[in-house]
Design a binder for these strands. Structure first.
Lengths: 184, 184
DNA sequence: TTCTCTAAAGTGGTCAGACCAATTAAACAG
DNA sequence: CTGTTTAATTGGTCTGACCACTTTAGAGAA
């Protein structure tokens, strides 16, 4: 027997966070490279990457292709409290939820470039309301945005309210998007 | 042969979510195995895993070692649980906060009609970043939207990061808005 | 048959090495 | 010193393998 694989996903995250603390890294500083981390922590690079991806998703770390991995501003954020509050108290009007989703998704249309691939992707999913909206949102690269949308949308799903757009509306949105092309 | 890298992290998440919807999976159902997903979506298993990890963080999916990957129960409890977890970790990229605010405010410009009164109001406040943006947002009638913006912005204020736009930018936004005029 | 137990198959978790893509730093020419 | 080119660094993805855990199917005993 060999008892290897002593590492686990959460332990790896913990290791990296410990390393950040012990190295006295400050917001903006660059972490060791993934290869270096792998060797230092005695885990594979793939595991390092999964841990870093999680830290990135949590907003602790930021990666730049070819540049390195950097420590984010470690600020406390209230926005999740907001969402939890509005969910718990659920004083929110259902119509506000719908409006919110429509606004966010419409925003995605104005902010994301309508490349041929993206257009094709949406076109292929125009028949399914939820799939269509998901692809719309995930076009944005802002993870905070995706998270907020996910939570609001989950709430919406809980209401069993059916489709947010009709297929005609979705097709019209798609046309408008393709037609828009270039801002400024 | 190693060939193309047509995939990206966000696209992969999108693909998997689409697959979940199209397969009409219900909470508790098992997703295809990672290997199967990799082949179906034409991406590597490593990429599938990174995407699944993200979905796991979003509370959409749950993995069991040796058992499989399952769609989460989407009841309220689970959902509060996720939020509380986010609250505990309370980490978010500052850049995402900034992006979020800019997106929301830009959205307000496209959604709110530039009536003479509103234009005058913004013009009167164009010298102060905070006031300008606030009047922008309050043009939207969606309470949830305003609430989320308020909280996110409060956090932003906490960072003492200074103005979000320069005065020139604000003036340009104003001009763009006034020029846009009429939707549909 | 029915039950138990074991071996095999299936699935997520990890690892290793390779190549691609973007950035950065160094070497170079002017 | 400045701008350009080249090499090294680093994150992103792919492939294939093996480990650890779970589930399932089949063999064997009652």
């Amino acid at each position: 027997m060999h008892g290897k694989h002593a590492s686990s996903f959460h332990e790896n995250i913990s290791k990296i966070r410990t390393l950040i603390v012990q190295a006295a890294l400050e917001p903006g500083d660059r972490l060791p490279s993934e290869r270096e981390l792998a060797e230092t922590l005695s885990i594979s690079r793939a595991s390092v990457r999964e841990a870093l991806r999680a830290l990135s998703f949590l907003g602790i770390v930021e990666t730049r292709h070819g540049g390195g991995t950097f420590l984010c501003e470690q600020d406390r954020h209230r926005y999740i409290e907001i969402l939890s509050e509005f969910i718990v108290t659920k004083q929110t009007k259902a119509s506000d939820i719908v409006d919110m989703l429509r606004l966010l998704e419409r925003l995605a249309l104005t902010e994301v470039e309508p490349t041929p691939e993206r257009v094709a992707l949406l076109e292929a999913n125009v028949q399914t309301d939820r799939a269509f909206r998901q692809h719309l949102i995930f076009g944005l690269k802002n993870e905070l945005f995706v998270r907020i949308w996910s939570e609001v949308n989950r709430f919406y799903d809980g209401t069993e309210a059916g489709d947010l757009y009709t297929e005609d509306e979705r097709r019209r949105l798609l046309e408008m998007w393709r037609g828009a092309g270039m801002p400024e």
